[in-house]
Computed example of a mutant assay.
Amino acid sequence: MLGIHKRNGIWQDGLATVMGPELLERWGIAEDAEASRVREIVLVRLNRVLDHFRKPEMPVIVWTAYNLGAGSPGEESGVVRRLERLVGQGEVERSVRTCTRRFNDVFLPAVVKSLSGGQSAITDGDLARASRWLAANIRPGAPEPAAAAGGLSTAIKRLRAPMEPVLKMFLDGTVHGPADGDGVPLAAKLGAQGEWLCVFTGEGLLAAYRESAGAGWPRIGRWTGRDVVRTAAGRIFPTGILIDPSPVMGAGADATLPLPPEEIARLAREC
């Protein structure tokens, strides 16, 4: 449990492994849960412990320690470095030593103590809020970029370019799309724009696209974003990925996230 804040905090790969089977069970997280769902539940559980503290500086100290709203999800700077930056930027009127003690000697023991009590149920609304906080990489209670729900789909609508928190949600989460007879994602040839794998963040979006476009695919597949990236990177022709494409050419651009072949090559090296 104490490892959740290490390295790049809540964003670290293998978070469920770091937590261990006992904590996963105590917090109601399935051992085979997708990484994005693990983060959402961890965020909700930690936030419920934090709600018991009344000192106004505690939220920013705690979430900085866990690397939420504190920097890049890929930055493995560690707790002390993140708190040093927090203090240096004047976001909290406490010394680095005080911030570190508040986290290590006050908050972490409170988390441990909370495990001995009953764990209240987590609702779909709780998970939706956590998904939005993670998508925007903001602390609970901070102003949200837009008032909407929908996890990855909503995060895409806010983007002008692929951002790391949203890409991580895509890689760790589940998408749906047209597949061939073997269950491999089908590539669409878009003329001069090259070849693309089209995937959708929800089955409803896929069904709406299929009905609108009158598409007849051999199969419908379900994969993680990482699986789709590896498939695209392994094709002979440079292939991009279109997330939540519109059936109408030139429409719905605000809800579609294109990952061009050069971005796929970068992501594949990190998968």
Results as ranks from 00 to 15, higher is better:
residue 94 R to N: 02
residue 74 G to T: 08
residue 70 A to M: 05
residue 67 N to E: 14
residue 77 S to Y: 05
residue 129 R to D: 14
residue 76 E to H: 03
residue 124 D to G: 07
residue 86 L to Q: 03
residue 110 A to C: 10
residue 134 L to M: 04
residue 133 W to K: 00
residue 133 W to T: 02
residue 83 L to F: 01
residue 123 T to A: 05
residue 123 T to C: 08
residue 61 I to Y: 02
residue 139 R to H: 00
residue 59 P to V: 09
residue 139 R to G: 00
residue 140 P to T: 05
residue 122 I to D: 06
residue 90 G to C: 12
residue 60 V to D: 13
residue 77 S to F: 08
residue 111 V to M: 07
residue 70 A to N: 11
residue 78 G to V: 14
residue 115 L to T: 07
residue 112 V to Y: 12
residue 128 A to D: 15
residue 124 D to S: 09
residue 121 A to N: 09
residue 63 W to I: 00
residue 69 G to N: 12
residue 61 I to L: 06
residue 114 S to G: 11
residue 122 I to E: 12
residue 62 V to P: 00
residue 125 G to K: 11
residue 67 N to H: 10
residue 73 P to E: 11
residue 113 K to W: 12
residue 59 P to G: 10
residue 74 G to D: 15
residue 119 Q to T: 06
residue 84 E to V: 05
residue 113 K to A: 15
residue 110 A to W: 03
residue 60 V to K: 03
residue 110 A to Q: 08
residue 122 I to S: 02
residue 136 A to P: 01
residue 88 G to E: 14
residue 115 L to E: 14
residue 132 R to M: 10
residue 102 R to A: 07
residue 128 A to H: 13
residue 122 I to P: 00
residue 106 V to D: 13
residue 89 Q to F: 08
residue 136 A to T: 08
residue 123 T to I: 09
residue 71 G to P: 01
residue 128 A to C: 03
residue 107 F to G: 00
residue 68 L to Y: 01
residue 95 S to C: 04
residue 134 L to S: 06
residue 69 G to Y: 11
residue 93 E to W: 10
residue 135 A to D: 14
residue 139 R to W: 01
residue 135 A to H: 01
residue 109 P to V: 07
residue 77 S to K: 14
residue 126 D to N: 14
residue 125 G to T: 07
residue 131 S to R: 14
